[in-house]
Design a protein around this nucleic acid. Structure first.
Length: 639
DNA sequence: ATAGGGTTAG
């Protein structure tokens, strides 16, 4: 009966001469074995499994290579139960079990299969019981642990155990273990060993090296490995572009993208996703739109579409984001979360919460990131009660335990709303040890509501944890300056100077054509500076007619009023706006990105410019957006 | 039989 299945598969007579149709099956093999090998290679899986049972019954030993293929077939089909079945057959005792138990091929395949199904404990149990292990066995386990979340330490431990066992790592091992590398020191050591054993020319090893250098923040290191390579392939290009995009160097990423195309490589989904992320970081909407044209080819790639969606949100173009979101063929939790925080960051909190309600009824189950977006929406719209409600119910409704991020949102929510005492109470009662992020949030709220005592307390807590933190010293002196307590403000500046901490200058940038123009506070070195100063003068006289007076409280130092006005006049966003009103086409919004949060004086100025010039102005700071139109800002003066 | 790249918050 089984023999006739075999003959059917082979398409020849049961007793005819066997041919060498499959190279790994000896030509004198039993027809059942030949048939089995063929089924393992081409499927269908269920026939191969049925035949495996017959082989066991007939006492025949299948080729380990064929069994490995069969295991791979299970992985492709996504059926771990079939994999377990095979495991039981080949290790289950009997003559066949005894035969396969000693086959490294089969055991390694099984370990790999369990790992691919995420059944790491099964994989490790099998691995531990193996009488012999080779590089492949070790590498499989190291790779599995390096890819699993939170098990990187174990991956490294296995790597060390492997070396102690006298097994030499190969390029597969190194590219796997690099994924578990978490400190620059460790990376230096690994890179050293790789060079020593001469594996540094392997593209896989190199792309892993690039990736780790970049992820650890060493852009130059990654770039160096990249530049030393003789041959690049698409994935190596993608690694280095992604590295730049992820570490915030959007311009570097796009520059590399251009070089990649010059080198004759065609981009794929991965490349485009990183390029979009670079556009997101730089707020280059026009470049992003061009990328959108290429995205159309990949209408089934959700990751890519999510990156596109985020780009539109972060470039402040909510119409595009909305349109894309409603047209997307599929939406996952990331798409919904992106849309919710995108709306919230653009000052459209009510719509953000509406999307969240739609998501609850017809979308995927919200996760912790979704809830950060929801709480963010509440805090930036002053919806204290709603915020409490979502915070208290998230565990019961969605099984999401409040994490640090959510607590931080709550402190922000209470602090912004002026409930500073409640915010402090919340910090002391939450389930986490307060960290600098939380204290900094409180400090920001103190600055907003001019509470110097509490600000000093928060700043002290931050400096306990991070003695050289410049941000909190600046915030603290800002708070004192806002209260005109110049002595105290000066004192915290002195602390900064003594510690050698320098304030990051304010920077704003704007995209014009294919160029990004950068403006630095007080710096008039832009080639168009003369024109910009003239334009600023014109804008100032226009907004003065609408009631603008310089709000010198936003200048930190204790100077004469005129000097303060001079400092305010050349804040980077004012320079960028003058450049924008001069150059941005009629009917198009002026989009500006900046590295620091916008000050109150600039905010008032821009509101009036939007009115006097009849222009939509969109400014993105590191946290949120301000859409200025007709004298009003989307944040309702609440940021 | 084992290995490399891409999306959401702060």
């Amino acid at each position: 009966m089984a023999a006739s299945v075999a003959c059917h598969v082979l398409g020849r007579s049961a007793h005819g001469p066997s041919r060498r149709c499959l190279h790994f099956v000896p030509h004198h093999a039993h027809p059942l074995l030949v048939a089995f090998s063929r089924l393992c290679a081409h499927g269908p899986l269920c026939h191969a499994l049925a035949l495996l049972e017959n082989l066991a019954a007939a006492g025949l030993r299948a080729d380990p290579v064929a069994v490995s293929r069969l295991i791979k077939l299970c992985v492709r089909h996504g059926t771990p139960s079939d994999g377990r079945l095979i495991h039981r057959y080949v290790h289950g005792g009997g003559s066949m079990g005894a035969h396969f138990a000693s086959s490294l091929f089969v055991s390694n395949s099984l370990v790999s299969m369990y790992a691919k199904f995420g059944l790491l404990d099964d994989a490790l149990r099998l691995f531990d019981g193996m009488p012999q292990k080779n590089v492949v066995s070790w590498t499989t386990v190291v790779a599995a642990l390096a890819n699993a979340s939170g098990r990187k330490e174990e991956a490294l431990a296995f790597f060390v155990a492997m070396l102690r066992d006298g097994v030499a790592p190969n390029m597969y091992t190194f590219s796997s273990v690099l994924g578990a590398c978490s400190t620059p020191r460790m990376l230096t050591a690994l890179h050293g060993s790789i060079v020593k054993v001469g594996l540094d020319s392997d593209v896989f090893v190199r792309s892993s090296l690039i990736d780790v250098y970049m992820k650890l923040g060493d852009l130059d290191g990654g770039r160096r490995v990249f530049d030393e390579m003789v041959t690049h392939d698409l994935i190596v290009w993608n690694s280095v572009i992604a590295g730049f995009a992820q570490s915030g160097d959007g311009a570097g990423a796009i520059e590399l993208f251009v070089r990649m195309k010059e080198a004759g490589f065609l981009s794929n989904q991965g490349t485009l996703t990183s390029v979009l992320r670079a556009c997101t970081g730089m707020v280059t909407l026009e470049v992003g739109r061009q990328v959108h044209a290429h995205v159309l080819k990949y209408d089934r790639d959700l990751t890519l579409h999510n990156a596109l969606l985020d780009m539109y949100c972060k470039c402040g173009s909510l119409q595009d984001a909305d349109a894309l979101f409603s047209r997307m063929p599929q939406r996952d939790v990331i798409s919904w979360s992106t849309m919710i925080s995108g709306l919230a960051q653009n000052g459209r909190s009510v719509e953000a919460l509406k999307v969240f309600h739609t998501m609850k009824s017809e979308g995927p189950r919200p996760n912790h990131v979704t809830m950060v977006g929801v709480l963010f929406a509440c805090s930036h719209a002053g919806l204290v009660e709603d915020g409490w409600c979502y915070f208290r119910s998230m565990e019961k409704l969605f099984g999401i335990q409040p994490e640090r991020e959510h607590c931080n949102c709550m402190v922000d929510l209470l602090g912004r709303a002026g409930k500073l005492d409640e915010a402090v109470k919340f910090i002391h009662e939450m389930n986490f040890q307060p960290d600098t992020v939380i204290w900094r949030t409180l400090l920001g709220a103190c600055r907003m509501h001019k509470n110097a005592d509490l600000a000093a307390y928060a700043a002290k807590e931050i400096l306990k944890l991070e003695p050289d933190d410049q941000g909190s010293l600046i915030l603290l002196s800002n708070t004192y300056a806002g209260l005109r307590q110049w002595e105290d403000a000066e004192k915290s500046w002195k602390v900064m100077r003594d510690r050698g901490v320098k304030k990051d200058p304010g920077r704003s940038w704007i995209e014009l054509g294919k160029q990004v123009h950068i403006f630095i506070a007080g710096d008039l070195s832009h080639p168009c500076s003369e024109g910009i100063i003239q334009e600023l003068r014109r804008l100032f006289s226009r907004v003065r007619n609408l009631g603008y007076t310089p709000q010198t409280e936003f200048v930190l130092q204790d100077l004469a009023n005129e000097q303060k006005e001079d400092l305010l006049k050349y804040h980077s966003e004012k320079l960028a706006i003058a450049f924008g009103t001069m150059n941005v086409m009629e009917g198009k919004p002026i989009r500006i990105m900046k590295n620091l949060r916008i000050c109150g004086d600039c905010h008032a100025f821009v509101k009036l410019v939007s009115k006097s010039e009849g222009k939509v102005i969109i400014i993105r700071d590191p946290v949120r957006f301000h859409h200025f139109q007709d004298g009003v800002c989307s944040c309702n003066d609440y940021w």
